Amino acid sequence: MGFHTFDVDRADALNDPGRYRFCSREGLLSLLEPVPTDVVADLGSGTGFYTDDVAPFVKTLYAVDLQPEMHDRYRDRGVPESVELVTAEVADLPFDDGALDAAFSTMTYHEFATDESLAELARVLGPGGRVVTVDWSARGDGADGPPVDERYDLGHAVSAFADAGFATTHAVERRETFVVVARREP
């Protein structure tokens, strides 16, 4: 599996509302089920496109991205008060054990899908904490998103989360993407 991050020179494309055809705001919120007291992390937040959609519904939202340039772009657009920018890899999150109620990733799982990253998610999520993953499927045609050989399929994601101590509560393969909702086992 190849690893890459999104090209910062193309970051403006991350703010294209056409992205909603793969993951709508309403769809993400219904999967995440945020409540006003939640502390949540957006994994691979980029320029904050989906971060902005979730921020009004939670207490704190950490916009986690490996590339500080993405945070610079987000600052240029304006960061909501409830959002804190965090530059980190998913495999090395700067949060205390059990600090998060939830995390989500939209089209970034393929960039961090390692045993170490999922173990780190299990560490920082409290018991029952949920992870929502929407990502490009290896079964897709590759017309959008990364090359097919850099993607995972639904079965891989479900197995990887199970191996890290998560129970999948929702999993579906779609035309070009897949969705996994998993809860950290107590």
Rank of each mutant, 00 (worst) to 15 (best):
1 M>V: 14
4 H>Y: 10
4 H>P: 00
5 T>K: 10
6 F>Q: 03
12 D>P: 00
13 A>H: 11
13 A>F: 08
14 L>H: 01
19 R>A: 02
21 R>A: 13
23 C>T: 14
23 C>S: 10
23 C>L: 12
25 R>W: 03
25 R>G: 00
26 E>K: 08
26 E>G: 02
29 L>C: 06
29 L>A: 05
31 L>W: 15
33 E>N: 09
33 E>G: 01
34 P>I: 01
37 T>V: 12
40 V>Y: 05
40 V>L: 06
41 A>L: 09
42 D>P: 11
42 D>M: 09
44 G>P: 10
44 G>E: 07
47 T>I: 14
48 G>Y: 09
48 G>I: 11
52 D>A: 13
53 D>V: 03
55 A>L: 10
57 F>K: 12
57 F>A: 14
58 V>A: 09
60 T>F: 05
63 A>S: 15
64 V>F: 11
66 L>T: 13
67 Q>N: 14
67 Q>R: 12
72 D>H: 13
74 Y>G: 10
75 R>V: 14
77 R>I: 13
77 R>H: 06
77 R>N: 06
80 P>C: 06
81 E>A: 15
82 S>M: 04
85 L>E: 12
87 T>P: 00
88 A>P: 09
89 E>I: 00
91 A>H: 06
91 A>Q: 09
92 D>C: 07
94 P>L: 03
96 D>P: 09
96 D>T: 09
100 L>Y: 09
100 L>S: 07
101 D>W: 05
101 D>G: 13
104 F>N: 04
105 S>Y: 00
105 S>W: 01
105 S>N: 15
107 M>N: 09
110 H>R: 06
112 F>H: 12
115 D>G: 03
115 D>W: 05
117 S>Y: 05
118 L>Y: 06
120 E>P: 10
120 E>D: 10
122 A>N: 13
122 A>Y: 09
123 R>Q: 08
124 V>M: 06
126 G>D: 13
126 G>W: 03
128 G>R: 06
133 T>W: 01
133 T>Y: 02
135 D>G: 03
139 R>Q: 13
139 R>T: 11
139 R>A: 11
140 G>H: 03
140 G>Q: 04
143 A>Y: 04
144 D>M: 13
150 E>Y: 11
153 D>L: 02
156 H>R: 09
158 V>E: 13
159 S>K: 13
162 A>Q: 13
163 D>H: 11
163 D>W: 01
165 G>R: 05
165 G>Y: 08
166 F>C: 04
166 F>W: 03
167 A>I: 08
167 A>S: 15
168 T>R: 07
170 H>K: 11
170 H>T: 12
171 A>M: 02
173 E>P: 01
173 E>Q: 15
174 R>P: 00
178 F>Q: 02
182 A>N: 09
184 R>P: 02
186 P>C: 03
